[in-house]
Amino acid sequence: MEPENHTKIPEFILLGLSDEEELQSFLLGLFLFMYLVTFIGNLLIILATITGSHLHTPMYFFLSNLSFVDICFTSTTVPNMLVNIHTHNKAITYQGCLTQMYFFILFAELDIFLLSIMAYDRFVAICHPLHYTIIMNPTLCGLLLLVSWILSVLDSLLRGLLVLRLSFCTNLEIPHFFCEINQVIQLACSDTFLNTIEMYFATGVMGIIPLSGIVFSYSRIVSSILRITSARGKYKAFSTCGSHLSVVSLFYGTGIGVYLSSATTQNSRINAIASVIYTIVTPMLNPFIYSLRNKDMKGALKSLVGIATLNE
């Protein structure tokens, strides 16, 4: 079978999560509901942070940015999946696939960086409370956010350019609900050595290193909390970290597992289903986790709802 030049590729076929016709209506309703909850929930977090003057702190600054990134993250995949299910058309153009791949990688890596920065923020707040406002000053917060954007943009651009150099055969079926880069690379007829090396290098740099930073931060946090003699003080310290730790565990547990196992497992559909956790479920749960476990955020959301009610 002769490879075709990638510029002549008309479209890829996204096989989705299931081939069963009777499940399509259920999947459409389920993922539409999850997307709306994700969009509205994270938007409320952003608005509550903006309107609540007592939430103008580094912790909530990064949380609002995380909510914005989560909205963009899910918007790169779910709307296209919903359209495909509704129209019974699984095709996506070559240009559309590359665009989706670029923005998916961009916002996924921003998620990783923000979770790492938030872990560092909690480390400073609990382990160095007297120096918190000096260390986590607005300049440093802005710089951390800027560096996160720059690194994410550059890496996603590099991955996109490496995919551009590939040629593809006539088998263009992707056993996923979006253009996941590992699946796209596996369809290539040309040499993918550079893509594979970059993929595992980026997984280490963008995944393992930030995770190591998170683990180090929380090991120091736990050590500091255990030295607190007051039971009330321990509970308060743990409660400020519990929500963030829950999100980190859910995101990293599924995300890294999918990426590291995709090269060895032959069941791509299982990887696609597992990807739902970190691409859709985690962004949807973030607003609930952070608002239900945080008195300040609950108060800000109640005030926001009150303001909206008065304006009607």
Score class of each variant (00 low, 15 high):
V78H: 13
M81R: 08
I85H: 12
S64G: 10
A91S: 15
F107Y: 03
D111L: 01
N80G: 13
M101Y: 00
M81V: 09
Q95M: 11
D111M: 11
V69L: 07
S64Q: 14
N65P: 06
Y102R: 02
L98W: 01
Q100T: 00
T77F: 05
F104Y: 08
T74Y: 01
N89W: 13
F68W: 10
N65R: 07
L110M: 11
H86L: 14
N80V: 05
A91H: 15
S67K: 04
S64C: 09
M101T: 09
C97P: 00
V78T: 03
I92P: 13
T74F: 10
Y94N: 06
Q100R: 01
T87I: 04
F73G: 05
I105R: 02
S75R: 00
L98H: 01
A108Q: 08
F73Q: 02
L110S: 04
I92M: 14
I85K: 07
V69H: 04
Y102P: 00
D70Q: 05
H88P: 04
M101Q: 12
F113Q: 04
P79Q: 13
N84W: 05
T87N: 15
D111P: 00
I105T: 01
V69S: 08
H86C: 14
I105D: 04
L98N: 02
I85Y: 15
K90D: 12
V83R: 14
T99R: 08
C97L: 01
T74M: 10
Q100H: 10
M101N: 05
T99Q: 04
M81N: 09
P79R: 11
D70K: 06
F104V: 09
Q100G: 04
I85G: 04
N65Y: 07
N89G: 11
C72I: 02
C97G: 14
F104N: 03
N65V: 07
C72W: 08
V83Y: 11
E109K: 07
C72G: 06
F113W: 09
T87R: 15
E109R: 04
I85V: 15
H88W: 09
H86A: 14
T76Q: 09
N84L: 07
N84K: 13
L82A: 08
T77H: 00
Q95T: 14
L106E: 05
A108W: 05
A108V: 06
T77G: 08
I92T: 14
T93G: 09
F73M: 11
T99S: 07
T93N: 08
H88V: 05
Q100N: 15
N65Q: 13
T77D: 13
S67R: 09
N89R: 14
K90A: 15
F104E: 09
N80K: 12
F113M: 03
M81F: 15
V69D: 00
Q95G: 08
L66P: 01
A108M: 07
L110H: 06
L82I: 14
L110I: 02
F73T: 03
L110V: 00
G96L: 12
S75A: 15
N89E: 11
H86N: 13
S75T: 02
M81D: 03
D70F: 14
Q95F: 14
D111E: 05
F103I: 05
S75F: 10
V69W: 04
F104L: 06
N65T: 04
L66Y: 00
F73P: 01
S75Y: 00
Q100L: 07
I112Q: 02
T99Y: 02
D70Y: 11
F73A: 04
M101C: 08
S64A: 15
E109H: 08
S75W: 03
K90L: 10
F104K: 01
N89F: 13
I71D: 09
F73H: 12
V69Y: 00
